[in-house]
């Protein structure tokens, strides 16, 4: 039961329109899960509902319990477009925010919290930028800072909303190898993603969406020509031979 997630019959309505219909899946610990689908498929909505940030019907269980019992064990990395990059915070301030969850209001941040933040910053290779304002960084560097904040939170569950959008190859590599390391430590990591070319190398499990659940399960099983076609329609072309599958699309 540890670090598992179970979603049963989850549906979301926006003003009478159904955004997500009857989604169900079970995920074990130590997995990287890609939530994949075309624009407007409800990927972010699914992630936010799982975290209880959107109203939904159905049930979501973290290790057999409701999400509210696991709040301090959840790290969330928002889409880059959700952040005000002019905000007067330095890189190290952002990463330190990851510790806020663990410090009660009457206590000051301890040295150990600051040390943890700095270590997280080192893990993403951003320690030399600790004193920069966040808007002065490149997209990839900004994303690494937020990954560092998630690391500093010291959690078992990670939720990343479109972490690879608009970032450089080097940053992407650093983040992917960090995620694989976390997975090997038994963490459960959800990633909203729309670039089909990386699906097989990045994820262990796939949740393929287009309003409803098209396929879920281990990538080798769920990522097939017919499921991709069902999710993306004519927006993706799948070239298939006996051993290889080439996906051309978004």
């Amino acid at each position: 039961m540890q670090n598992t997630i179970s979603v049963k019959d989850l549906s979301v309505h926006y003003y009478g329109k159904q955004a997500l219909q009857h989604i169900s899946f079970d995920i074990g610990a130590g997995r990287i899960i890609g939530i994949v689908g075309p624009n407007g498929a409800g990927k972010s909505t699914l992630m936010k509902s799982m975290l209880g940030l959107e109203k939904y019907s159905g049930s979501v269980q973290f290790s057999g319990e409701p999400v509210d019992k696991h709040r301090s064990n959840i790290a969330y990395v928002p889409q880059r477009s959700d952040i005000d990059w002019d905000f007067p915070v330095l890189v190290k301030d952002v990463v330190t925010m990851g510790r806020f969850v663990h410090v009660p209001w009457y206590r000051r941040l301890a040295q150990s919290d600051k040390k943890k933040a700095l270590e997280a910053l080192k893990q993403v290779g951003m320690e030399q930028f600790a004193g920069r304002q966040i808007g002065e960084l490149s997209g990839g560097q900004q994303q690494r800072v937020f990954i560092a904040r998630a690391l500093a939170q010291d959690t078992d569950y990670f939720f990343l909303d479109e972490p690879f959008v608009g970032i450089d190859m080097n940053s992407e590599k650093i983040i992917v190898s960090l995620l694989k390391k976390l997975k090997n430590e038994g963490k459960t990591i959800f990633v909203v993603h729309h670039d089909l070319s990386k699906v097989e190398t990045y994820f262990d499990e796939l949740i393929l969406l287009n309003g409803h659940l098209i396929a879920s399960g281990p990538v080798q099983e769920a990522f097939r020509a017919d499921t991709i076609k069902a999710a993306y329609g004519d927006n993706a072309a799948v070239l298939q031979s006996d051993k290889e599958m080439v996906v051309v699309g978004p």
Binding site: D68, S72, P78, I83, F100, W105, F159
Partner: peptide, 22 residues
């Protein structure tokens, strides 16, 4: 002063603050 950290976090990144249970 007392609510400085929750105020700052919910101002800077509301979604993360909610996800973390603030």
């Amino acid at each position: 002063v007392i609510f400085y950290r929750p105020l700052l976090l919910s101002t800077f990144d509301e979604t993360m603050a909610r996800a973390a249970g603030f």
